Simulated scan of single mutants.
Amino acid sequence: MSKRNNLFIFILTLGVFGILNTEMGVVGILPQIAERFHVSVSQAGLLVSLFALAVAISGPILPLLFSGINRRKVLLFVLGVFVLSNIVSIFAPNFTIALIARVIPAFLHPVYISIALTAAASSVSEKEVPKAVSKVILGVSAGIVIGVPITTFIASATSLDLAMTFFAVVNAIAFMGVLLFVPSMPVKERLSYGAQLSVLKKPIIWQSITAVVFINAATAGVYSYFAEYLETITHISGTALSLMLVIFGVASLFGNVLGGKLLSKNAIKSVVIYPFVFGAVYILLFLMGKFTAPMIIIVVLWGILYAISNNISQYWITSAAPEAPEFANGLFLTAGNLGITIGTTVGGLFISGMGTQYIVLGGLLFLILSLIFILLRTFMYSPNKQLAK
């Protein structure tokens, strides 16, 4: 892969990081946001759940509508909107304005990610496509798990305003990178809307989408309240909380690499086993969450498995619709963010109704539901052949 392609893919990945950091970076500062706007932590969770809902709604639609426009122009437009919306969020006078400023750019989230995945793949030889795409997916993982501890640290060390400024700065740097170093990318060939939409006629795609929705509900439903859980149950806050988030983030980057290797070695078995392994970690979290030392080990395992869910989700949907990869990536984003919306909402209900510790039960419930649909697809579509792969 040439240095020019490496720079190109790095800029695409930086934009992905900025967008995902905007989406999930508030996880670590939800308590501070709730305090600023005088709302409950579960209400502040709407900043995560409604953002994800907007992505889920636009995921299969907007990438199609933007598919005929020069990709460089679209990338600049999306990043520009994210920069402006982040600036508005910093100065928002009330929670409603802050919420609106986050939801508007959320609709454009899947447009950038889909283009980034497609552009990265088309910039290299066929042999190097998996490597290029994995770097963009790494930006997704990094945006979720590295941006959170960075934002949390900035908020605890300085102020909430500076933490939110971090979102705008990263997107602004990505914008300048695209402006200065990314060439014009006119669309030469593209599948018709009908050809891409036809994959929705396949039962396997709906089984896969449902499984991915529940996988992401299981992971986000607990992780979205990570800071609240550690502060309330484990009694960790401030710098110690930031350190735990860093541990989670580093473990997640390792998990991203591990997930790719596991899927390459035996994809179907890896997907089937995943809910069982994550379920065991959630049970440990429920039983040992009050103790700091065990929580360090649990957070490492949690981080690894959280990242693997991204690899599994992307594989499970795109493998069901290989004939329309760009549309499949849009469906992957839609299913994932719909899961985040459902999981975060249900997690908030568990906190309000039963207490923070019991959000783990919601995660376990969604893992069981995901397993049902994973097994349904596995046994309906040549299970013996797939398990042998």
Rank of each mutant, 00 (worst) to 15 (best):
M1D: 01
I342E: 02
P186H: 05
I273L: 15
S264N: 13
W302R: 09
I104P: 09
A56G: 03
A168T: 03
I374N: 03
N70F: 01
I209Y: 00
A172Q: 00
L333S: 08
F248N: 02
V212C: 07
K389C: 12
N337A: 08
I247Y: 00
V129K: 14
A307K: 15
N21S: 08
V272Q: 13
A280E: 12
R377A: 05
S352V: 08
V300T: 04
S352G: 10
I104M: 07
S67Y: 13
A220V: 15
K188I: 08
W206Q: 02
H235K: 10
I273F: 15
Q207F: 15
S313E: 08
I298F: 06
S125C: 06
V133D: 03
R36W: 05
V136K: 00
F107W: 09
V222S: 08
K3T: 15
F286G: 01
S264Q: 13
T158K: 14
L14S: 01
V222P: 12
F153Q: 08
Y193D: 02
A106D: 12
S40M: 09
N310K: 09
I372Q: 13
P31G: 07
N266K: 14
S159N: 11
S114M: 10
E323L: 07
I340A: 06
V213L: 09
L263C: 07
G80V: 05
G221M: 02
L241F: 09
G260M: 06
N216S: 11
S2E: 12
G363A: 03
L371I: 09
S49P: 08
E323Q: 13
A321N: 10
G18Y: 00
V299G: 07
I374A: 00
L263P: 03
N256C: 13
T318L: 01
G303M: 11
T239E: 12
L387Q: 04
S67H: 10
E35W: 10
G194N: 11
I296R: 05
S382N: 15
T344M: 05
F276H: 10
V26N: 04
G59H: 03
I297R: 10
T96K: 14
N5Q: 14
A174W: 06
A218S: 09
N70H: 05
G249S: 01
G260S: 03
A280I: 14
A56I: 00
F17N: 03
L84E: 04
I317C: 00
T232I: 06
V145C: 11
P60R: 07
K385M: 11
P186S: 07
A227S: 11
A321H: 07
L30F: 08
P275F: 10
I57C: 06
L162E: 08
S67P: 12
G249D: 03
G18A: 14
P294L: 13
A328Y: 09
M164E: 08
H235N: 09
F107Q: 04
G347C: 06
S198F: 06
R102N: 01
A92E: 09
T232M: 08
E323H: 10
M295R: 01
L376D: 15
I368K: 00
I90A: 02
P294G: 14
I19Y: 01
S123H: 01
I317V: 07
V178K: 01
L62T: 04
I173M: 12
I273K: 13
L375M: 13
L46D: 08
K135V: 14
T158Y: 15
Y315D: 14
I273P: 09
I144F: 15
L243T: 11
M185K: 06
